[in-house]
Design a protein around this nucleic acid. Structure first.
Lengths: 333, 333
DNA sequence: GTGAAAGCGCTAACAT
DNA sequence: ATGTTAGCGCTTTCAC
């Protein structure tokens, strides 16, 4: 193997080659100060030639900014965190900001370890994300001297959080079903101790009005099956089911098919999440609510970017609108 | 909002407070040089008290190491990349190394942008990961002065790659079915232009011997359905099916149930991926092959760590053994 | 055992 | 328009 470890080019290399001082190089490259246009061009030319890239370490030492941010997530890279990370990264890469991704696996000690590594590295800001809205963020985030933004998690009082608008999302689902002239809509959802489940359920009740019925259970296909078994033992059966997530919806649809109930003709089904591997593969494909997590991440990224630049951004909870994705499971009957 | 932006403590703050010079502080904190034990303790004590954390920027400027690595992935945080990232991070966090995650979304321009950001930030090394084995890594990775490791991707000649052992994995599946006295095993898999599909198919043929039959298609449930429809139009039907991934397997199982064929009594089914949201929710739950992606990531992480420390690690392709996960879809008949 | 001083690669204030 | 200089926060000789 040939030795690839050529010493990195420094500003001095450029200066020597261009026959000017290092400060002229600095000014030329950064388009600052007064530099003869010819000189500027020549310096830039030479810098490019020898592959000079300014050390962000040296730069950061002066400027106190590193163009890096940390993302702390409580789970092991789940399906919620990832679209958000994509959004964050997308918002920041064009500004030259890179993202440290740190999964804490719900382990406070690991969270602390990651956080210390981030602080050692002088990240300009931190985004905390979680797999559920009611996770309590690490207390260590409380008194940092760098800005912190919460994404898909409620930050403490006085902080800035970006959250999906579960209430609006659930209303979207119910309104859609009502618009299709469905009369009897039942809501099958996850555990009641999840804030998201409670929010969606409350919104369903508010939109639907009298006769609303909510079945809390688990976020699984199995629960979807079980719930259908319970419901269809009764006399009155619904003509629409709004599920708290896509997995439940898939279980519901499979159970309905097993019973010979036609979807969407007899019963329309709407899910929540737009988890494509589930929603697109149910038969029929699932109408569902998309939380626009990537957009949520993008917003959080832009916010942290602004904050690190010293912009004043009002704290509070920002809701991100959900989007209805219509597929076959809710067609007209 | 109270001003939280207290100036960071520096080594000088510690020195002043301890009444010693900064070099003594440095030596005391790093357990280097000759320092009186009492002094050392006192310095450490004071450093902790005022919350001093050495700037990794200043440190990196001297040492040429930043304790950061970059992960470049060709997709948008898919289900393959993520367990690997978890493994990488797990291997490195205890060493104080943080990971920049960069999704290139299969866009070469974006890849270049990310790569330049990483180089600007002096990452100590780079791990490239992909969603399929036969992705061609960005050429820009070729002549870097920092080590590069490939994970779930074949690097160029002379590089170090970590790959799942698809051949062994497929053999595991076939041997398992044969061990259950299954006689007629068919292989339904994804597109033939995927290297992974070809490797698994070849291994299946080699293990199974005469009479092997491979159906190439897509990596979807839909294709699983379609394949079963084709197969069961014929006279001779198999008593076992080995699928190229879990989605196909799920489609296969659903199609079999629709036809009244019992799984596993009449036909045993084995998948590939151990994608839990799929495998655990099929009815019956799916026996499948786990590629141990987290372990693969861990190995890649350890390798890059060694390389950045200057250890000599032989280039080549390292196969990571797959693991058979037995669930109900392949029980004894 | 401790401290003074040089210097990592860069930017910015100040001379010239 | 360009160069000299100080210094960001730290590690590392080398004197004392």
């Amino acid at each position: 193997m040939t030795s690839l470890a050529h010493r990195r080019r420094t500003i001095r290399d450029v200066a020597k080659r261009a026959g000017v001082s290092i400060s002229t190089v600095s000014n030329a490259l950064n388009d600052t100060g007064r530099v003869n246009e010819e000189t500027r061009l020549r310096v830039k030319q030479i810098a490019a030639e020898i592959g000079f890239r300014p050390s962000s370490l040296a730069r950061g030492l002066l400027s106190k900014r590193t163009s890096t941010i940390g993302m702390l997530t409580n789970d092991t890279y789940g399906r919620l965190t990832l679209p958000m990370t994509a959004g964050v990264s997308e918002a920041l890469v064009s500004q030259g900001v890179s993202v440290f991704l740190c999964a804490t696996n719900n382990d406070p000690a690991l969270a602390k370890l990651h956080l210390e590594a981030l602080l050692d590295k002088h990240v300009d800001g931190i985004i905390f994300t979680a797999t559920r809205l009611d996770v309590v963020p690490p207390v260590e985030l409380l008194n940092l001297s760098i800005p912190v933004v919460y994404a898909f998690a409620k930050g403490p009082a006085g902080s800035l959080s970006f959250l999906p608008d579960d209430v609006q999302g659930a209303r979207l689902a119910v309104d859609h079903l009502v618009g299709l002239s469905r009369r009897t809509i039942i809501h099958i959802t996850g555990p009641e101790d999840y804030l998201a489940a409670r929010l969606r359920a409350r919104s369903y009740r508010d939109s639907y009005g009298a006769g609303a019925e909510v079945l809390f259970g688990d976020w699984t296909e199995e629960w979807g099956h079980a719930a259908i078994d319970m419901i269809f033992e009764r006399d009155a059966t619904p003509d629409a089911i709004f599920c708290g997530n896509d997995q439940i919806a898939r279980g519901v649809i499979d159970a309905l098919r097993d019973r010979g109930v036609r979807v969407p003709q007899d019963v329309a089904v709407v899910g929540f999440d737009n988890w494509e591997v589930i929603a697109e593969q149910t038969r029929p494909a699932l109408t569902t609510i998309d939380m626009e997590l990537k957009e949520l991440g993008r917003r959080a990224g832009l916010a942290i970017l602004g904050l690190t630049k010293g912009e004043a951004i009002a704290p509070g909870e920002r809701g991100i609108a959900c989007r209805l994705v219509v597929r076959q499971s809710s067609g007209r009957n």
